[in-house]
């Protein structure tokens, strides 16, 4: 059946599917930051997309400092590998630190306040981040250096797989596998799951819930940092508004998968990516956003718990 659909849709189907998978994995990394924070403190961190944007700016800045990019963000052809390595280490650290700082400064004092207070504060932080981005890099879209080449590795196939595609797969998939193992098997990971399921009981077990929250913001931030670098290297552009749209798509992915649910965020991300690329390919680029947000509305009406969410919100 899949074959016949593919034939009917033409040879570009597989190309759209690949692009959707790759974009979806990036959304998934960002969606994980939304879903993990929500799972622990029931906050929709609306600043998360803009944290991703600042991560991309930071990576771009690093590329310029290392000499891999000129002042306009064009690749110079030098120190490409060094720049990628530095970006992949430093951008997650930067985003993790910033996320933890914002939690301590803004959300923590509101921990016992009604849920609306931290939510509105998160929207405020989103504006602050966006304006910081404008102050840092201006309002025009910038190049992000193409440090990973766009060479077609499979000229004989109907689907063109490039180094950029491989880079996204090789970075995002191990990170997600690592996160899953971390949450399953480490003491901190177990503490995070326990806290998400019942914070009072977690305290009674001897879990320092404040520390778990800090760790959650750090991990969510680091994932956004990784996503920012990989996104920049894949799309080769950056701008102060990139976090707004990408953040909303990733948020939709988290809701689609079931907010608070880690495998759900990954599944939702991949689905949103594929829907976006197929929609762009067959319906038209101008329908991309309406399509995604129509999905968001439909889920919120008919299945607010998301695809895997049936297991997430039950209370004993």
């Amino acid at each position: 059946m899949f074959e016949s659909i593919a034939t009917a849709l033409g040879p570009e189907f597989y190309q759209y599917l690949l692009a959707g998978l790759v974009t979806g994995l990036l959304y998934a990394l960002i969606a994980l930051g939304y879903t993990m924070v929500y799972g622990i403190i029931e906050l929709i961190n609306f600043a998360h997309g803009d944290l991703f944007m600042l991560g991309a700016f930071f990576a771009l800045q690093l590329g310029i400092w290392v000499g891999a990019a000129d002042a306009k963000g064009q690749a110079t052809g030098q120190s490409a590998i060094l720049a990628v390595a530095v970006m992949l280490v430093a951008a997650p650290v930067f985003c993790a630190s910033l996320n933890v700082f914002v939690d301590r400064a803004v959300y923590k004092p509101l921990r016992t306040a009604p849920k609306l207070a931290p939510l509105v504060s998160a929207i405020g932080v989103s504006f602050i981040f966006m304006n910081a981005g404008v102050f840092w890099m201006g309002t025009y879209d910038l190049n992000f250096p193409a440090l990973v080449p766009n060479t077609n590795l499979t000229p004989d196939w109907t689907v063109a797989i490039t180094y950029q595609h491989l880079m996204v797969l090789l970075v995002t998939i191990p990170v997600m596998v690592g996160l899953t193992l971390f949450v399953r098997y480490t003491a901190l990971g177990k503490a995070m799951r326990a806290t998400a399921q019942n914070p009072t009981a977690a305290q009674l077990m001897g879990i320092n819930v404040d520390r778990v929250i800090t760790a959650t913001f750090a991990i969510g931030g680091a994932l956004a940092g990784v996503a920012a670098v990989v996104y920049g290297l894949y799309v080769n552009s950056a701008g102060y508004q990139m976090g707004f749209q990408t953040g909303l798509f990733a948020f939709t992915a988290a809701v689609l998968g079931g907010i608070g649910n880690i495998p759900g965020a990954v599944l939702g991300g991949i689905l949103i990516g594929i829907i976006e690329k197929l929609g762009t390919g067959y319906v038209g680029d101008q329908w991309r956003q309406p399509l995604i947000f129509a999905i968001l509305i439909v889920i919120l009406i008919f299945r607010p718990n998301g695809i895997l969410g049936a297991r997430t919100r039950e209370k004993v």
Binding site: Q197, N198, T200, A201, Q203, L204, G206, N208, K315
Partner: peptide, 27 residues
């Protein structure tokens, strides 16, 4: 703080049990 009390040798079986619903019995 609550999370240090258990280290001193006090443990509570709380009202309403407060079992972790999505962890296994063993977990």
């Amino acid at each position: 703080p609550a999370h240090d009390v258990v280290r001193l040798g006090l443990a509570q079986s709380p009202e309403g049990r407060k079992i972790f619903p999505r962890l296994t019995v063993r977990e």
